[in-house]
Computed example of a mutant assay.
Amino acid sequence: MNPLKCAFGVTSGKFLGFVVRHRGIEIDQTKIKAINEMPEPKTLKELRGLQGRLAYIRSIKKYLASAPVLGAPIPGRPLVLYIAAQERSLGAMCAQEIEDRKERALYYLSRTLVGAELNYAPIEKICLALVFAIQKLRHYMQAHTIHVVSKADPIKYILSRPVLSGRLAKWAMLLKQYDLVFVPQKAVKGQAIADFFIDHPSARMYFDGAARQDGAGAGVVFVTPQNHLMPYAFTLTQLCTNNMAEYQALILGLQMAIEIGVRDMDIYGDSELVVNQVLGEYEVKKEDLIPYHQRALQSLNQLDDIHVGHVPRSANKLADALANLAATLALGAEESMNVPVCNRWVVSSLEGEENVDTTNMIYVYTVDEDDPASTYH
């Protein structure tokens, strides 16, 4: 035993964050001091901030109540190690498939990058995340096959190099001790937008909706100050009015941002009606729009610092195009489609008049009635 951590003959003491007394276990008042002394919100911004934090606590409470939060590994089954690297931090989660292709989390890891690590190339940061996870979870790794899931293959990057030196040589010696298999990370909407907002916390959002007789769609575009884009298109599964589609686009974009913890955002749309109703400048007179308006306000109240503004359609072209594309495709409820957009030019410009076929070609010239020399063909 450590004598410095032992106490004998005392009437009370702190243990694992609680106060243990002769009459039972009590809450440590220092742990809730910040809550007890929290001032009441005095402005609309402070009220929205409080509502956002309460909503986050409710979501965490629901997650933690889903027992078991963390499980013990089952012998004989491989483990799945998810790793990620951001500009200034590393993260990893160790999980295991239990039944019906469901995964149970076993361990979470994260740390910030320090010193020269901040200057590593992105692929080397992913390698560092793998090494960090292996060092921390060595007791798990030695007894199981590990499926490593990430955006890039850190195992190949390290072990396939003909000459290794410095940190790469040390990493290679460590990786060779374990049974590692790389699994490419699937394109997951939540993960992609989470990475996007971690890198660009001050992103703006543009939204637009489109409704037709045979389908409806919504477009959402997130844009950083450096003009990095994250576009999304949604086919709406029910026919609706154009104003409903506009509200759907706004709500979908807000849900995406809230799910991954965004709190500050500028929001723009080209629907003057929707924007002004959200701002409280227009009254919601149509009963069919009231549920959408209430849902949009609930989502907006979960953000701390927001700005909602109207922009002309010319400034909202990308979201408008995405909404119309989704309305045209009219996908089913469980369907999705990746549509790549590329810059191409197929036919080069004609070089020289001699290569032009003049067969059946019509020439037109302006005829000046006062000029007898003018002709036309």
Rank of each mutant, 00 (worst) to 15 (best):
I146P: 00
R138W: 06
F222S: 06
E99K: 12
C127D: 11
P231Y: 08
T235G: 14
E259S: 09
L4G: 08
A121D: 10
T237M: 05
L113P: 01
M173S: 15
Q135C: 13
S271W: 01
F197G: 10
D179I: 10
V181N: 13
F234K: 02
E117W: 03
I198H: 12
S299W: 13
D28Y: 08
K156W: 01
E259D: 12
Y363K: 10
C127K: 01
P340G: 09
Y120E: 01
F182L: 02
R88V: 07
E351V: 14
K42R: 12
H144E: 05
L180P: 06
H228G: 00
E335S: 14
G219S: 05
S314W: 03
K14C: 10
M256P: 00
A85L: 05
E117L: 05
L128H: 11
A187E: 15
I260N: 01
L54P: 00
A321P: 06
M38I: 02
P154M: 04
P3N: 07
E37G: 04
D28Q: 11
M256A: 10
L279T: 03
F207M: 02
M337D: 04
C342K: 13
C6Q: 10
D100R: 12
P68A: 01
G71H: 09
K14Y: 11
A152D: 13
K33F: 03
H377F: 11
G280K: 10
N242K: 03
M230E: 09
D368L: 08
T224I: 02
Y107P: 04
L254S: 02
P184K: 11
K5M: 02
H147K: 14
A187V: 13
M361G: 05
I134M: 14
V356R: 12
A194V: 02
E259P: 00
K136P: 02
Y376T: 14
